[in-house]
């Protein structure tokens, strides 16, 4: 039996939550929202040509593992990460890290984790958990999207670590190998903000950032006509799930970002960011209203073009608001540089 004293923290999102918990374990106490903001987690991605779960891919965040990679770089934290060809080696290495008292972050496939509620077990391979001990055949996991630590049998964890298909984790394990005594948080926060602004506003392709949002709106308005009632309903439900169910903290990560901006405003002594925090709070609520309206349409079996057009208008309104908020951040950063 090996266990490390590891403080479990409940969080909204697995990747930022896991990274924040590992940092805290190394004495760097940052909130999940802070880690999310510094790692430039906020994003919007609309890839209609990729079908996930039979529906067009839409995400309110950046690609899996990017938050940790960027966050570590900006905080000056070194991460030792490893993928494995061989499952036995991967599990052995995990055991030896745990035996020496080091908590280990793992990328896993949700479908194979038995402690997940049944109806939430879908094939998604980008889920992060922290292993911090082992008792007999069970691993002790701190899965930050759960309110308390959980246990997982060795065979199940192995299967989850070596789930295949899109985003296959290939046994990815990571630990913090070096954390600096002093962190230039101001610099890290500014870097996180700058990148988010530029990725959301300045990538000149139609599937990314604000442009992606507007293009999704146009596409969504046409779903009942182009794809038929059944697909329109299914795709809308999928969008709502990506926005709310998949650990976003509400409103497609926008409320978490508002929390980050609130902290950033104090840290950088930039009152303008406090206003943007308010804006993002309203934007998050707006996305939640989109989900409410969408769920109403799904429940009523309403796939009329008029309803989808009004849903599309809601997305456009969010795009306008987000553009305004991001430009305010941009100005605030430039004038205070």
């Amino acid at each position: 039996m090996t266990t490390t004293v590891f403080q479990h923290h409940h969080a909204a999102h697995c990747e930022s939550g896991a990274f924040a918990a590992l940092l805290r374990h190394r004495g760097l106490a940052l909130s999940e929202a802070m880690v999310f903001g510094i790692g430039s987690g906020l994003f919007f991605l609309w890839f209609p040509f990729i079908k996930l779960y039979g529906a067009p891919l839409v995400a309110w965040r950046d690609a899996p593992n990017t938050i940790i990679a960027r966050g570590a770089k900006r905080l000056g934290v070194r991460i030792e990460k490893q993928r494995f060809r061989d499952e036995d080696t991967a599990m052995r290495e995990l055991d030896s890290a745990l035996a020496s008292g080091v908590p280990v972050g793992l990328q896993t496939g949700v479908f194979w984790l038995p402690y997940f509620p049944r109806d939430m077990r879908f094939q998604f391979n980008g889920h992060h958990v922290i292993a911090y001990g082992r008792v007999d055949n069970d691993y002790l996991l701190s899965d930050t999207v759960f309110e308390a630590p959980v246990r997982c049998a060795a065979e199940d964890l192995r299967r989850a670590r070596f789930s295949r298909g899109p985003l296959a984790p290939r046994g990815l394990a990571y630990q913090i190998s070096h954390a600096p005594m002093e962190v230039d948080l101001v610099k890290a926060v500014r870097a996180g903000l700058t990148m988010t602004v530029s990725r959301m506003l300045r990538i000149p392709v139609g599937w990314i950032g604000i442009r992606g949002m507007r293009n999704m709106a146009t596409a969504l308005a046409g779903w009942p006509q182009r794809a038929g009632a059944e697909k329109a309903r299914h795709w809308l439900a999928n969008a709502i799930r990506m926005q709310e169910e998949i650990g976003t903290g509400g409103g497609g990560f926008r409320l978490m970002y508002a929390a980050f901006l609130e902290e950033a405003a104090e840290l950088l002594t930039l009152p303008a960011l406090r206003d943007v925090s308010d804006q993002f709070a309203a934007i998050g609520d707006g996305w939640r209203e989109f989900a409410v309206a969408g769920a109403q349409a799904i429940k009523a079996g309403d796939t009329s073009s008029a309803t989808f057009a009004s849903l599309a208008d809601r997305i456009r309104a969010r795009a306008d608001e987000e553009e305004r908020a991001l430009r305010t951040i941009d100005r605030a950063l430039r004038t205070s540089a």
Partner: peptide
Amino acid sequence: FVLATSRGWDVESVANAVA
């Protein structure tokens, strides 16, 4: 802003049920 806990949301259940 604080981290609050939710027991669930009907809106999510509706979307989840479709999947």
